[in-house]
Write a protein that binds this DNA or RNA. Structure first.
Lengths: 226, 226, 226, 226
DNA sequence: GATGAATGAGCTTTCATTCAT
DNA sequence: CATGAATGAAAGCTCATTCAT
């Protein structure tokens, strides 16, 4: 079982096979319950080779986290057009996010479940990625706020825009909430049959952009045609 | 180290001491990395006594999950007035939630991080609690939607209210998003010095009730005086 | 389950209850697998009481062996008439033996299986009993031999009787073989449905007294009317 | 202490060393009292290696039983000439049996004492071997009976041969008795200094073939010259 | 007299990790 | 380069045994 045993592969390829196996096992069993034996077997190599290439279980797990974190952020980045309007960027990013997590459940489990539960060293790895995403979302929120400044309706209403009033912490909290909601929805979408990435993204866009208040007033956010 | 070594305590007391120690160790080390030796030591008893009272590591962990889940839901329930308006109920519930998670970080770690990461048996325990909370939030959303139906402004605008339009799955997704955001904010508030439970609750209320759109339009949700 | 919990019994009675329970548990689980907890529970008393009366697991087991050994030898002795002819004595003794082992399977397991398998101390206890039985059988053989001395047919044939020819070791070996056969047949009779104590005794009497040679010649030993 | 510590041996060799050690320890201490630690030490390897090769204490014990059972039956089979007369076959088989049990006391203890005392799983293993031997002896008895049919002396005396008269159960009981006697004599011979395998076999042949009656009449079975 | 409370010691088993080839 | 052979260390769990009441 596991990968087909092919001899004499370049190191880079072998390493990827090992990481593939490790992500699968770590994602399903958890960091501690995963055994190097099983990982080596699934990878189709001998255990000493795993140690030769990846040094230790800790290093192997770290490598998994990094690779999956990179893959996830890359997927999101690839889905977003940098100069599009903020809501469009968020919409695209969310769709990319939900699509990727749906297609790589083990990698997502490694990032979202395992890495945060087994010591600060690993948690820090994932925190780095998370902060990148939170920063991205924060930028979107601020950009949207700036765009809203000269909003005719608000100006006349004397409304106070977000930028000057909300302190940094508040925006950080909003971004955190948005990202946390996205993470939960990813699990929910994966666990609920029939929920697509697009639906999950739409639900979250509605929730975030329009808010429950507007939703109940019958003014949902409407996704762009794409 | 650990609890003061007092001999000959009645069983019920010792059991609570053990659960206290177990929640602490499980919450910090994780289920698998936690050793029964350390739990017994922190509880100030010998290992066999732990087994005599709690049967096994699995049972002990399950007992921890149940106790903490019960404590959390009880805290939230105690903070909410059943006949208050929906937004007030949500506001009160969130404050109680963030207060409790801030005061019981190990218990929260057990519920939010550890229990979901170490096998379906444990995950199911938390899922039960989580579904209870999600159902509560869902009721609030639907109640708010009903209350919004005869909204004058919307009526005249021909807006369509939430109730008839959003299918079950959609509402479930919204509740899921809200709960997920709350969970993430709990972690964030615990990790960010200077963020109080009240602030976290306010941030989430704003996000959920008003939505980013309204926020940027300068129309935040305003907390009731309490 | 276990004995009915009756309070305040005289010590002797309590001790018998404990031995009853111990024989049952030791006989079924084996010495090491038997736990003092289970024995105390089956006996319907608390564990410290068992220790108070019987001192230790070792002592308890020894007490079981002694009681069961005594019961078995007493049963055999009670079945034999001391002044009857040798074959009659053997026949009666065997019937008593097979009857007792069939009626006390746990006690028999303690003596035959458990006591011999868990250290010389215990084995010595059974060996003492066994030697008593072997000695009894040896006496029967010698008595039969003496009785056979003036056998008319043999005298005329110039046959040499057993006594002068067979050395002590030989007679001991014969007794050993007879006893060993009896022990095996006890297990066999207990394990084979439909085999009564009487049948087992008859089989062994035939085997021992007549021998396979005579049996095949159609000259079986015939049991006395009883 | 234990075997000389030689490093890096092929698996098959190490496995035999482990089985050697295990048979010795199991035979002397009993299944439960034997510790994997001691077995590993006597085998001259570390405990994990024992588990790597033999899986578990249960599997290790089973492997011991099987190896020793096979060795014993092989020894007996090797000692018997299939086409010899029945009494000759029995005589040869018994000598081989007593020789083997004398040379492998620990293996014999495993089979005769330990395997039957620690659970049906192990007992079944030894029962299989025992039934093979009992079947062999049963065949010998029936063969001897057939050979005795046209016995001139008996014919004229109107004696009834064994075959038609004795039911299946009776023959089974006889075989059981014979095998049981042999087992007991093996223990007795091992425990009694100066008793050789040949003497034990002679004693049992006399007992079985001639019977006590004939013995006392001075007509013992006489061993063939060999 | 009788027991609930408590433990030291030891067991089987597993795992990350490393040589020697 | 690649691996079969091997282990130190520790974990979960159980048991015979004893106090203190």
């Amino acid at each position: 079982m596991g990968a087909v045993k092919t001899k004499r592969m370049p190191r880079a390829v072998r390493e990827q096979q090992m990481l593939d196996a490790a992500v699968r096992i770590f994602g399903r069993r958890g960091y501690m319950a995963a055994s190097m034996d099983e990982i080596a077997e699934v990878a189709g190599v001998s255990k000493p080779l795993v140690y030769l290439y990846l040094n230790s279980k800790e290093d192997l797990f770290t490598a998994c986290i990094r690779r999956e974190a990179h893959a996830l952020t890359a997927a999101v980045r690839a889905g977003v057009e940098p100069h599009a309007p903020a809501d469009r960027q968020l919409w695209d990013g969310l769709r990319a996010f939900f699509t990727h997590t749906a297609q790589h459940p083990d990698g997502w489990a490694v990032l979202h479940l395992q890495a945060r539960t087994h010591g600060d060293v690993f948690a820090a790895e994932v925190t780095a990625m998370r902060e990148e995403i939170v920063a991205f979302v924060t930028q979107l929120i601020l950009a949207a706020a700036r765009a809203a400044l000269p909003h005719p309706r608000l100006r006349s209403c004397g409304g106070t825009p977000i930028d000057p009033d909300l302190p940094e912490t508040e925006v950080a909290g909003l971004a955190e909430a948005l990202v946390g909601a996205a993470e939960s929805l990813a699990d929910w979408a994966n666990a609920t049959p029939g929920v697509t990435a697009r639906q999950a993204a739409a639900t979250l866009m509605n929730f975030a952009w329009a808010g429950l208040g507007d939703l109940m007033d019958g003014r949902p956010w409407s996704p762009p045609v794409s």
